[in-house]
Design a protein around this nucleic acid. Structure first.
Ligand SMILES: [Mn+2]
Ligand SMILES: [Mn+2]
Ligand SMILES: [Zn+2]
Ligand SMILES: [Zn+2]
Lengths: 147, 147
DNA sequence: ACCTGATTGACACGATGTCTCAGTTACGCT
DNA sequence: AGCGTAACTGAGACATCGTGTCAATCAGGT
C-alpha cells in the first residue's frame, strides 16, 4: 500500500516547497494511476493542471525522492511513486508490471568495479527486464501444450 | 583502435543489408567523431546524408551490434561504435569520457536476483557514472591546495 | 490582513525522432 | 553486361516529449 495523500503532501512541505492545489491534484492522480504512469497519462488524469506544471512537479518530486523514473525496455520513460531510498526496477516486458528491488551485493560489486576501470563511481542506473511470475507461467503452459 | 572502415562495411553486408554511399559516409564519420557522439553531431558531420537516414542507420547498426547507445547522467542519449559483445558503460561526468566494461560477476548476480523478485530476467540496462582517473586527480589536487 | 517570492497556465519554442512517398540504387540472377 | 525488384534514400511534414517566457496568482511567514 502506498503512502497516504497526507504523507505525500507532508513530504513536499517538509522539503521546503509549497503545497498548492495543482500539486495536491497531481499527487492524487498519481495514486489513482497506480503502479506506474507516463507524464502524458498524468496530464490527462489531471486536466485542470497545465502541462508545464505536470513536468515541473514530476521533476520536483524526483528531486525530493517522492517519484522515480522507470526506463522501459524500449527506452520510454515512466514515473512512479517511490517508497523511498535507493532502489532499482524490474519491468515485465509482457504485462508492464514494475517492481522495486534493492540489493547490497550489487551495490558493493559496482563499487568494486570502479577500481578496475580507474573511475570513481558516483552513481549508476540499473533496470532489469523480463517476465513477472504471472506472465512466465502462462508462457510455459503454452509451450507444453504446443509440444 | 577501433575496427577499420572495411571491417565495419563487411559487418553490414554480412548481416544481409546493402552497402550504400550514405552508410559508408556515416560509418566514416562515426570513426572520425571518435569515442561517442550524438545523433545530431553525426548528422552535422555527414551533411550529405538525410536526417532520416542518419537515424535509420543508427538503428540498423544497433540491431546488428555495431553501434550501442550510451545513456548519460542527465538522460541524454549518445551513440558509439561497439567493439562487440555484451557490455556496459562507465561515463565520466566531468569530461564525458566513456569506457566499456563487462563483468561476469555482475551478470551472474543479476541472474540470481531474478529469482528473488519472481521475475525471469531477459535483459538489463546498466550504466555507471563517476569521474575518470584523469578527472579525479585534479580534483584531489584542488582539495589539497584549498585546505 | 499584507508582502513577496514561489508557483502557475498558456503558449511559443526546442530537441529528438518517425512517417510518407516518390525517386534512386544495390545486387542477385540470367 | 543488362535486368528486375526489393532495399534504400532524401525532403519535409508530422509526432512526442519536454523547456523557456512571462504576466497573473497564490501560499504562508510576519
Ligand atoms: Mn543501485
Ligand atoms: Mn550486463
Ligand atoms: Zn507480467
Ligand atoms: Zn573525465
Amino acid at each position: 500500500m502506498p503512502l497516504s495523500l497526507d504523507a505525500l503532501e507532508r513530504r513536499v512541505a517538509g522539503s521546503g516547497h509549497r503545497i498548492t492545489a495543482p500539486r495536491r491534484t497531481l499527487l492524487g492522480s498519481m495514486q489513482q494511476l497506480g503502479d506506474h504512469f507516463t507524464a502524458e497519462e498524468l496530464a490527462a488524469a489531471a486536466p485542470s493542471v497545465g502541462r508545464a506544471t505536470v513536468f515541473r512537479t514530476l521533476r520536483l518530486l524526483q528531486e525530493i525522492g517522492t517519484v522515480c523514473q522507470v526506463i522501459l525496455d524500449d527506452g520510454t520513460l515512466e514515473y512512479r511513486l517511490a517508497s523511498g531510498g535507493h532502489h532499482h526496477h524490474v519491468v515485465c516486458s509482457a504485462c508492464g508490471a514494475v517492481d522495486d528491488f534493492a540489493n547490497a551485493d550489487i551495490e558493493a560489486l559496482l563499487g568494486a568495479l570502479a577500481s578496475l576501470t580507474g573511475f570513481t563511481i558516483e552513481a549508476h542506473r540499473l533496470e532489469l527486464y523480463g517476465r513477472c511470475a504471472r506472465c512466465t507461467a502462462p508462457l510455459a503452459a503454452t509451450e507444453t501444450t504446443a509440444s
